[in-house]
Design a protein around this nucleic acid. Structure first.
Lengths: 163, 163
DNA sequence: CTTGTATAGTTAGGGTCCTAACCAAATTGC
DNA sequence: GCAATTTGGTTAGGACCCTAACTATACAAG
């Protein structure tokens, strides 16, 4: 996780625009600020969850399993989380050790295992989720309904370029 | 770096709002999308720079040193980058080994060293920056001037809560 | 049936970043 | 001037995530 504490200010970008005239300075401003904000948000999530004794990746595993009660394969988790199966393999090993998840043989494929939430996993998630979401929601308290809708619209446009 | 490939959809959040009525669902949507977009942007920067043989953290060191020609201390770099001095110490060691930066004694404090760009460092940065900024700018091509201004305004409001 | 390829999962090794402990120089307070 | 604290920097060890190589099962084609 990397963080842009010191975004180039308007003057710097201005000067840069002169050196490279083909450059789109206003675009840069927007993108850099977006990146910075995203990083800060991830950090906010991480810090809050850490206080609940949960790493961000473990939290995501819990959320995804709660949303897929029938169970998920490791590969499925990896795709949904945007990490490699190696990473999932590791985090699942730890979570199984801590009894947060259960795994059973997948009847449709003997190579695969179906991972599900344990009772402890469910309980932990229920304990953590409300606080987590409250912390996140607090961040956009300053925006009214119209502004939130407009922000979502603009983010969707940008997001389409990143697919 | 972690990534939310699978954001909860409107229905999921809806259901969640029923279980926890005090929850601000529209706020959640905005925040999660912002976090996701920020992550994607960081990944975009990283991938592009990697192809130029530069890690993101090395890139930031180069940019910060270019912006502070008189030199920076390791601690100053750490603050501007949002990482610890331990991390800076490590990356500077590697960059000095590769002759991208120079360090000289700080006349005002014999514990500190002033780090500056070497000629190779400058050359590398100049070679990499235009492409880097082009890639970033491409992301917001879909927004016109008014939309960019509005997006910046909204992001500033959100950012104030995270400051 | 057998050979080739794709897929589920694990393991080893490396990069990045953190905290904690440490050293040395600077600063502060008596 | 000297003890206590602060500050600049390094090192060790751990967390998280990656790629690459491996095992084992599934599947597809001849």
């Amino acid at each position: 996780m990397f963080d842009l504490r010191d975004l180039p200010d308007a003057t710097t970008l201005e000067g840069f625009g002169k050196r490279f005239p083909e450059l789109d300075v206003s675009a840069l401003q927007v993108v850099l600020r977006l990146a910075r904000l995203g990083e800060d948000l991830v950090r906010l999530m991480q810090d809050g969850l850490m206080r609940d004794g949960l790493s961000l990746r473990r939290f995501f595993v819990l959320v995804l399993l709660a949303r897929n009660a029938e169970g998920l394969r490791a590969v499925g988790l990896a795709k949904k989380m945007g990490v490699t199966k190696a990473t999932v393999s590791e985090v699942l090993a730890g979570m199984a050790r801590d009894k947060l998840v259960l795994s059973s043989a997948d009847p449709e494929d003997s190579r695969a295992q179906l991972v599900t939430l344990s009772e402890q996993g469910k309980a932990l998630l229920d304990a953590v989720l409300p606080g987590h979401y409250q912390r996140l929601a607090g961040v956009v308290e300053g925006l009214d309904g119209d502004e939130r809708a407009e922000l979502l619209r603009l983010l969707a446009i940008v997001g389409n370029r990143l697919g």
